[in-house]
Design a protein around this nucleic acid. Structure first.
Lengths: 65, 65
DNA sequence: GCCATGTGTAAAGCAAACTTTACATATGCG
DNA sequence: CGCATATGTAAAGTTTGCTTTACACATGGC
């Protein structure tokens, strides 16, 4: 699962810590998501999309199978 | 997190076991999702949405906070 | 009544998501 | 140089998602 979190975050001029605060998760979680270490839970994916005013499909792209 | 899985499944005339097979998860997982016992992983949410030819936002509604 | 099918649920176990604490490295600025 | 900020990572622990096995109950058809 790819995502555009880093790109979207940088467009806003936010640090990983800033984004973590806004999402109410740890900075390590933001880092792990950006680096593709794991996928977010569905509720967190919704929070990310809403924060950037996008759909989940806009932010996350499932691997083509 | 609410979802329309049961409704969508019944529209197709599928049993929980049928849907589980199509999604490649266990029947208990389908049952738990329909009954709101937990949320699906993001990849599974994508699979559900694609199976019904809908967006994630069409199928899943986060609790209003 | 018997059997098949569909649904709900429980327990045990594994894997994935997330946390806290901690340390390393890089960059920029006084 | 010394310090602050940003990022990457690791280890250990908790919670959540999902599996397998198993059993209960309801409904409908023979």
């Amino acid at each position: 699962m790819n995502n555009r979190i880093r790109e979207l975050r940088q467009q806003k001029g936010w640090s990983q810590a800033d984004l973590a605060t806004l999402l109410k998760v740890s900075r390590q979680t933001v880092n792990a998501l950006e680096r593709g270490r794991y996928d977010p839970s569905l509720p967190l994916a919704f929070n990310v999309a809403r924060l950037f005013d996008l759909t989940i499909e806009d932010v996350f792209q499932p691997d083509q199978e």
